[in-house]
């Protein structure tokens, strides 16, 4: 019963907090660019607006196009249920480990890429092609750090990894740990579609990757996808934050009081906002890379991850 409660709590938190996080990042960017920027609540307003609008469907599309927003959203949502965000004691955390998480992202992407092709416009196809290519080469760089963490923890179950690191205390912060974190952080940029890999704010055909696939969506469907993208960003942050710096997270070992949950929520929010601000800073201080420079960046991240792994294996004591 407790598990159900915690799960519902976590889900509500994710749903509620994810748009805000996007808002915060936008605001931070605006701050550094000396603009006022949109309101923190603008993402919520956008979602509301989309929901009220008429949905326009292309006559060329098939049922794939129509089903994709739901599949995408639900896949992301299931990740939100399995990932330890506020607590390591989720109802569904047994259903999956890091592979389920990564592959649910992949499932979501698979459908979105198909939907991008479905309308038959060159923009969608181009975006699908680029998105799939970039995410494919990001995959080893994404997996290797996670593997290192899983090996260190003796489980690929994310709750298990988080708990293990949490119990390890500050000594867990070895150089392997940090290298792994940086490697994963670079991939996180790719996964959230941010500069220097993608530009989330543009619909310019030459630069866009992710947005191109959403181009043909409108109304309710767009609302669903936009929210899902917000959540995905939050989840990536959660992965980065909780896997490496899980302190503050509510764990069954400490017992569940309202206070621990409150602390967990605040701690996580702080970590997420912190990460978001770092990303915002990176975004305004760099230009978007050429598409075919991206592999070099990801290769670097992969090598860093490999270094982390080697350092872990050699130095684990």
């Amino acid at each position: 019963m407790l598990a159900v409660g915690l799960t519902i709590l976590q889900m509500l938190f994710v749903l509620g907090f994810a748009p805000l996080l996007s808002g915060i990042i936008k605001k931070t960017k605006a701050f550094f660019q000396s603009r006022r920027g949109p309101s923190l609540l603008q993402p919520y307003r956008d979602l509301y607006k989309y929901l009220q609008k008429e949905t326009v469907l292309s006559e060329h599309t098939s049922w794939i196009f129509r089903i994709t927003p739901y599949v995408y959203f639900v896949a992301i949502l299931i990740v939100a249920l399995t990932l330890p965000i506020l607590t390591t004691f989720g109802m569904l955390s047994f259903t999956g480990d890091l592979f389920i998480v990564i592959y649910l992202f992949a499932l979501a992407r698979f459908f979105l890429a198909l939907a991008g092709l479905d309308a038959g416009s060159a923009f969608g196809g181009m975006a699908s092609s680029r998105e799939m290519a970039v995410s494919a080469i990001a995959e080893p760089a994404l997996m290797l750090p996670l593997f290192t963490m899983a090996i260190a923890a003796g489980t690929s179950n994310l709750s298990g990894i988080v708990e293990q690191v949490a119990q390890g205390g500050w000594p867990a912060l070895t150089s392997a740990h940090l290298m792994t974190f940086v490697a994963l952080f670079v991939v996180g940029i790719a996964e959230t579609g941010r500069i220097p890999i993608d530009n989330p704010d543009t619909h310019l055909e030459l630069t866009m990757i992710h947005e191109g696939m959403l181009l043909e969506y409108s109304g309710k469907q767009l609302a669903l996808l936009t929210l899902a993208v917000h959540i995905k960003q939050l989840l990536i942050f959660a992965l980065l934050a909780n896997l490496f710096f899980p302190w503050g997270i509510a764990s069954p070992a400490a017992g569940f009081q309202v206070s621990t949950l409150l602390i967990a929520t605040l701690a996580f929010a702080a970590k997420a906002v912190g990460l978001g601000m770092v990303m915002a800073v990176i975004e305004i201080s760099m230009a978007k890379m050429r598409l075919f420079k991206i592999p070099d960046l990801l290769m670097g991240s992969f090598l860093l991850g490999l270094l982390g792994l080697i350092s872990h294996v050699l130095l684990r004591g």
Binding site: L51, Q52, K53, E54, T55, V56, L57, S58, E59, H60, T61, Y70, F73, V74, L77, A119, G120, S121, L215, E216, G219, K220, A223, L224
Partner: peptide, 19 residues
């Protein structure tokens, strides 16, 4: 989610050509 979105959302659905 389908039910919820249907319940939340307004506005109908229109078929048109791809932009």
């Amino acid at each position: 989610v389908y039910r919820v979105v249907k319940w939340l959302g307004h506005g109908g659905t229109r078929i048109d050509e791809t932009w």
